[in-house]
Write a protein that binds this DNA or RNA. Structure first.
Length: 278
DNA sequence: CGATTTTGACCAGCGC
DNA sequence: GCGCTGGTCAAAATCG
């Protein structure tokens, strides 16, 4: 039994925007997937820099086009390559993994014929890390691995071990930069994190994330969780999320927060709906 | 011994 | 219709 409360649908792990002082929010044209992208020269964690790329951010909150559902396929908005940019440089969000996702017709393959799979909102995170599978406070079970076209690195498929939780995530490395791990989360956790079961330390997030557009603003504080080491994680606060960190040796300035990393990135709409009813 | 990972096979969508 | 590709299943293997 695990905690079953609300938890951020996304990894509450450490995160770091990759990017200097600018960030870009865009929508994958092919799928309507939202993701954040930022650039930073160096990871605050050294080898483990977490770059947030919520691949599909909030949607039904109005931040972005409505989440696609069976009745409302992403096609409704996928046509626009909209992107929101903080101000200065806008990097065209690279969307490595998501581009191949087909939006609307989600059917998939639950070997049950006739049943269409409902595609959940997704968030992608680009992380600079040597390890593929990054701790995010949840326990995952790998259920598949596939070679990806145009990429020398295989893509791994994970599912939350909580039987009641349908969250999945894909992990793959960027073919352009092998040091970057692209993690795509799909769905929302219906339970709390379990901490870092594998030698970790603390629980990452047991609070509701609160993500809103303005929180993405470079001038607004963003909360991050980040591991100080591979197996540990701590939380800190940063008031200038987009402020360039010069080198990994410098103590990261992350915002202390009572929320998970994604808590600030994931829009309310993306989070468990029931929590909004509270 | 239970949980997790590995891996080949299968299925469905899409483009040609 | 066919082939390609992404995503998932499930049995076997491995791990703790």
């Amino acid at each position: 039994m695990e905690d079953k409360d609300r938890a951020p649908s996304v990894p509450a792990t450490a995160g770091e925007f990759v990017g200097n002082s600018s960030w870009t929010l865009g929508v994958d044209d092919s799928d309507g997937t939202h993701f954040f992208s930022a650039d930073r020269e160096k990871s605050i964690f050294g080898d483990i820099g977490w770059n947030l790329i919520p691949d599909r951010v909030g949607t039904d909150e109005g931040l972005f086009p409505p989440v696609q559902t069976e009745t409302a396929p992403a096609s409704s908005y996928r046509s626009n390559n909209q992107s929101i940019s903080s101000s200065s440089s806008e990097d065209p969000p690279e969307k490595p993994t998501i581009s191949d996702e087909k939006p609307s017709e989600i059917p998939s393959k639950s070997k049950k014929k006739g049943q269409k799979r409902i595609r959940q909102p997704r968030f992608a995170f680009m992380t600079k890390s040597e390890v593929d599978h990054l701790e995010d406070g949840y326990r995952w079970r790998k259920y598949g691995q596939k070679a990806v076209k145009n990429s020398p690195f295989p893509r791994s498929y994970y599912r939350c071990t909580n039987s009641k939780c349908t969250v999945k995530k894909r992990v793959e490395r960027s073919c352009e930069d092998p040091t970057i791990v692209i993690t795509t989360y799909e769905g929302q956790h219906c339970h709390h994190t379990v901490g870092f079961p594998r030698g970790g330390g603390g629980i990452i997030s047991t609070h509701q994330p609160s993500f809103t557009t303005h929180q993405l603003s470079p001038s607004m504080p963003i909360h991050f969780y980040y591991p100080t080491e591979l197996n540990t994680s701590t939380t800190t606060t940063i008031s200038q999320p987009c402020q360039p960190l010069h080198d990994a040796s410098s103590p990261p300035l992350l915002p202390p927060t009572d929320e998970g990393l994604l808590g600030d990135i994931v829009p309310l709409g993306m989070r468990n709906r029931d929590e909004r009813n509270i």
